[in-house]
C-alpha cells in the first residue's frame, strides 16, 4: 500500500509541467523513504532525475518498494484538474493497475478523484557515476532562463566556459558571435546572486533547446545550479525546498 499527501499540491503540478516535454513514459520508484524517477528523452541526450523525500509530505506511507509505470502525458492531463491551492494525495495498492490521485480544496469543499491507468515500461536504469564537479555555478533561475531564450534566437548551440572569475555563455552563428559573461555577484539581494565555485575551468558546448526545456523547472526554485566537468554531461539542478531535488543531465556536443 502506498499513500502520500502533499499539502502544497502546486509543487507536484509544477514538477509534472517541468518534465512532460522531455520524458514520455516513466517508471516511478516508490520506497519507504520517498519517491524517485529517472528517465531519458527519446534521443537519449537528456535525462531527468527526480528525488522527493518522504519528509516533505504531510503524510507518507509505503509499506514496500513499488514501481508505478506512468504516462507523463496522461498524468499532465490529470494534473490540469488540480487547482493551484489543492492538496494532492497519491494512492496505490500492491500490484495496482492504477494510481489514484485526489485533489482536495478544504476551503471550497471541492474534491476531485482520478484513477490513472498504469502502464508497464521496461526502461533500463542508467548508472550515474558520483562526479566531483570542477565547476559549480549558482545563478538566479529566471535570469538563466532569460539568457538561454535570448541566446537561442542567435544560435542553436551555446558554449559554456567557466573559470575562477566568470562563467561565459557564448554563441556564434550567421548572425554573428558574442557572449554573456557573469562574474561572481554576491549582491545583498540573495536571489540576484551569481556564485561561482570553480576548481578547474571547463569549456563545453550544448544544444540550447534542451536547456530551454529544463528551465521550465525555474518555477520550482529561485536558483538554478549548473554542475560542469570537462568529461561529463552538464547537470542543471533545481532544489525543491523541503521536498527534494529535480536534476537534468545533458550530454555535450563534442567540437571536432
Amino acid at each position: 500500500m502506498f499513500e502520500a499527501k502533499l499539502t502544497e499540491g502546486l509543487i507536484l503540478k509544477k514538477i509534472v509541467e517541468s518534465i512532460k516535454d522531455i520524458v514520455t513514459d516513466v517508471n516511478i520508484d516508490i520506497s519507504p523513504s520517498g519517491i524517485s524517477l529517472q528517465a531519458m528523452d527519446s534521443s537519449h541526450v537528456a535525462l531527468v532525475s527526480l528525488n522527493l523525500s518522504m519528509d516533505g509530505f504531510e503524510h507518507y506511507r509505503a509499506d514496500t518498494n513499488m514501481v508505478l509505470g506512468v504516462s507523463i502525458a496522461n498524468l499532465a492531463k490529470v494534473m490540469k484538474l488540480a487547482d493551484n491551492n489543492d492538496q494532492i494525495t497519491l494512492q496505490a495498492d500492491q500490484e495496482a493497475t492504477h494510481l489514484k490521485i485526489i485533489f482536495e480544496n478544504p476551503k471550497t469543499e471541492r474534491t476531485t478523484e482520478f484513477n490513472l491507468n498504469l502502464i508497464t515500461i521496461d526502461s533500463e536504469h542508467l548508472a550515474i557515476p558520483e562526479t566531483e564537479y570542477s565547476s559549480v555555478v549558482t545563478i538566479n533561475s529566471g535570469e538563466f532562463s532569460k539568457i538561454c531564450k535570448e541566446l537561442f534566437s542567435l544560435s542553436e548551440t551555446v558554449q559554456i566556459t567557466t573559470n575562477t572569475d566568470y562563467v561565459q555563455f557564448s554563441v556564434e552563428g550567421e548572425v554573428g558571435s558574442g557572449q554573456v559573461r557573469l562574474g561572481h555577484n554576491d549582491s545583498e539581494k540573495k536571489e540576484d546572486q551569481t556564485i561561482l565555485e570553480v576548481s578547474e575551468s571547463v569549456q563545453q558546448q550544448f544544444a540550447i533547446r534542451y536547456l530551454n526545456m529544463f528551465n521550465k523547472a525555474s518555477t520550482l526554485s529561485s536558483f538554478t545550479r549548473l554542475c560542469l566537468h570537462q568529461e561529463q554531461p552538464l547537470v542543471v539542478e533545481f532544489k525543491i525546498d523541503n521536498l527534494g531535488v529535480l536534476k537534468y543531465f545533458l550530454a555535450p556536443k563534442i567540437s571536432d
Binding site: A127, I128, E231
Partner: peptide, 14 residues
Amino acid sequence: KGAQKSLGNFFKKQ
C-alpha cells in the same frame, strides 16, 4: 558545430 553526444557515451546501463 560539434556533434551531439548521447548519454550512453557517459553513463552505463545498470
